[in-house]
Amino acid sequence: MKRALAVLIAAFVLFLPGAAFAADSSYRTLSAANHPDWLANVPDNKSLAALSIPGTHETMSIFGGSLTQTQEDFGASGGTLARQLTAGIRMIDIRARVNSGNTFTIHHGATYQNANFSDVLGTLSAFLSAHPTETVIMRLKQECTGELGSCTDVSGQKSFQDIFDSYASSLFWAPSVTRGAAAPTPTLGAVRGKVVLAVMHGAFGSPIEHYGLAQFATWTDGSSTYIQDNYSVSNIGAIATKRDQVRRFLDTTNAGDPTKLYVNFGSGSSLFAQPQQVAGGALGVQGVDPFLLIYLNEGHGLTRTGAIMMDFPGSGLIEKIISYN
C-alpha cells in the first residue's frame, strides 16, 4: 500500500503543471538578458581557461514535453540558439542524430527538435559575423544509442566523424576540428569570430578521435577531471545533492589548474525530477539556478566559475557569471 501511494504521489508530482518555481532573475528569464558583445571587454591574451562562461545544457531542446525540454522556446531551427547567443551564452551542448544523406539532425533522446546541424552552423555563422569579438565553445555528441527512449541513427551512412568533417569549415577554429590534433586550450585572441569544438562524443560518451581540446581527452559520460556532470537526480529531494555537487565543483574550479577549462553542469533529471524542477525548484526544494545566483552573489572567494551549463537560465544568473570576467 505504501509503495503504491508513493508511486501515485510521484506520478502526481511528475505531471503537476506548477511544480517548478516561478520565473525570476535566476530562472526562465533569458529573454531579459542582452550581452551580445561581452567578450569585447576581455583581453586577447586571456586563456579560455580563465574565463567565466554561461552555457546551456541540451542547448536546442525545446520539444518533447516536460521530461525532454531543457531550454526556453524562442523558436525552432536556429531561433532558440540565436536568442541564447544574444543573451550571452558562450558554450553550447549540441546533440545530433545521423540522418539520411549523411546529415545531422538535432535530437534530445527520441525527440527531434525541429532543427538540423545546418541550422546550428548557420546561426553561429550569422552571430559571429555580426559580433566578431565573440567566440562560442561547442560540445558535440552523437545522441542516438538505439536503446529504449533514445533515437536510432539511419543505417548505411558514413561514420559520425566523417559526416562532421563534411560540415567543418572556416567557421571553426581549425586546430579543434582537425582529426587527431588534440588542440591546446587557446587564448581568446586566437579564436575570436570562431567556434571552438571542445570535444566530440560518441553515442555512449567516449571522445572520438581526439577532436577538440587535448584537456578533454578523458571526458567520458558523466564526470571526469575537468567536468562535473552528475546528471541523474533521482527525485525532487535529491536536488539538494545536485546543488552541493555544483557548489563543490565551483570550489574545485577556483582552486584548480589555471590553464584548464572546467565545465560544471547544473542540469539533471530523472522520471521523478524533471529538468525544470531541478533547475527552478519544486515543492519547497530550492532549484539549482536560484541556488547558483545566491552563491555567486555571496562571492565565497571565487575568481572564476569556468563554464556553467544550465537548464532554463535567467537573466540575472547569466549576467552574474559574465561579471566574474
Rank of each mutant, 00 (worst) to 15 (best):
A4P: 05
V7N: 13
F12D: 09
V13C: 14
L14Q: 14
F15A: 01
A23M: 08
A33G: 12
A33K: 08
H35W: 04
P36C: 07
A40W: 00
D44K: 15
A50W: 00
S52K: 02
H57D: 09
H57L: 09
S61E: 00
S61F: 00
G75M: 13
G78Y: 08
L81P: 01
I89K: 02
R97T: 07
V98N: 06
G101S: 10
F104Q: 11
T105L: 12
I106T: 02
G109I: 00
T111I: 13
N116P: 01
S125R: 15
P132V: 10
T133A: 15
T135D: 13
I137H: 06
R139N: 12
L140K: 10
Q142R: 06
E143K: 02
C144N: 11
C144W: 12
L148Y: 09
F164S: 02
L171N: 13
A174D: 03
G180E: 06
G180V: 02
T185G: 07
V191F: 09
G193I: 00
L197Y: 03
L197M: 14
V199P: 02
H201W: 08
G202P: 06
A203N: 14
G205P: 03
Q215V: 05
D221F: 09
G222E: 13
S223I: 07
Y231H: 11
S234R: 13
N235M: 08
G237H: 07
K242Y: 05
Q245D: 14
R247M: 00
R247E: 01
T252P: 12
P275G: 00
Q277A: 14
G284Q: 03
V288W: 00
Y295I: 01
L296A: 00
E298D: 15
G299T: 07
G301P: 09
L317M: 06
